[in-house]
Design a protein around this nucleic acid. Structure first.
Length: 318
DNA sequence: CACTTGACCTGTCCGC
DNA sequence: TGCGGACAGGTCAAGT
């Protein structure tokens, strides 16, 4: 369930790994891979050089030298995995430590949230790279040097679009997104303003609304509300500016903390090669129902708010 | 207008 | 061991 920090992590990885590479071939035998475009796709992709990788909310924008851009949304189970050329040619060889290290660095995990690791919804990192493409692979980009970028999506909720670069900002999905929480211009007064536009709604619903602000999903909504001691069902209108500013601070803190951890999976996951799971989640409430609140010891509860699984401390967020 | 529900999907887990 | 059903959650569309 990639949210802002996970997508940001992927963006940074892709920036390092695919910018400057030239597309040699693309296979996209999938309705949501480049819909509404048939043979044109190849014309604008093949031979195109990757100019930049950007993130907008939970979406990725890959800008190409053909003045076309690829817009990608990972939704729940999307992954983008880069596999360098050596992976294929060395498949049957005994893997050297150096090769193993290269492989670790080249793997970008989209299954970045702690629960994904814990509950095994994703591929274990160590076995993923050597076995691609697999049955969840929807789109494959091959670069001229023989490396590949795989778009995998178990549940097919995600999508990949190709559109002229000038049209990205007018794409319906991009167009309705609110401001980026981590922009330097997104100060606490802006946050309060944005939240007030959803004043009548439950505060969790407001946080999740991508048009209020972009990038917050279920995990960081729960985590930031817990940190700010605000109950998810509280109406925004019932929360003072002061408390909203606290929420702002906690939200930014949680998002940045997660990015520092490589997008909410810690290094255990990325470095999972042969190392047993000494993984520890930084999450304070998310998927911790039945466990003690780290702040007061009360038992974390799970309920449904705005149609989503919601985790709260009955004491701290009373 | 605000909110809920269902749809989109598939893999996993739980209870019988 | 198998099987049905609940569940996961980002986003959109339709219904209340």
């Amino acid at each position: 369930m990639p949210e802002l920090p996970e997508v940001e992590t992927v963006k940074r990885g892709l920036e390092r790994l695919i910018v400057g590479r030239t597309v040699a071939d693309v296979s996209h035998d999938w309705p949501k891979g480049f819909p509404n475009s048939s043979n044109d796709v190849d014309a604008f992709l093949i031979g195109a050089r990757v100019e930049s990788v950007q993130r907008r909310g939970k979406a990725l924008v890959i800008t190409l030298s053909t003045e076309y851009s690829i817009l990608i949304h990972l939704k729940m189970t999307g992954q983008l995995v880069f596999v360098p050329n050596e992976q294929h040619s060395s498949k049957s060889k005994v893997e050297t430590p150096k090769l193993a290290a290269d492989r670790q660095r080249s793997t970008i995990s989209l299954h970045t949230s702690p629960d994904e690791v814990r509950f095994g919804a994703g591929h274990p990192n160590e076995s993923l790279v050597g076995h691609l493409p697999d049955k969840s692979t929807r789109v494959v980009f091959e670069f001229v040097d023989g490396s590949h970028l795989y778009f995998n999506d178990q549940r097919k909720f995600g999508w990949v679009k190709l559109l002229p670069s000038y049209a990205v900002q007018d794409d319906p999905f991009i167009k309705k997104l609110g401001p980026e929480p981590l922009d330097t211009s997104f100060v606490n007064t802006i946050f309060v303003q944005r939240m007030r536009t959803a004043n009548k709604r439950m505060i969790k619903a407001a946080l999740l609304d991508q048009s209020v602000l972009a990038g917050v999903g279920n995990i960081y909504a729960d985590e930031s509300l817990w940190a700010a001691r605000i109950h998810p069902t509280e109406r925004v209108s019932a929360v003072s500016d002061d408390r909203l500013r606290v929420l702002y601070t906690e939200l930014i803190r949680v998002l940045k903390l997660s990015i520092e951890h490589g997008g909410s999976t810690d290094k255990t996951y990325v470095n999972a090669e042969g190392e047993s799971g000494s993984y520890t989640s930084f999450a304070q409430v998310f998927r911790r129902e039945g466990l003690p609140c780290t702040r007061c010891g009360s038992t974390i509860e799970k309920s449904k708010v705005a149609g989503r699984g919601t985790h709260t401390c009955p004491q701290c967020q009373a």
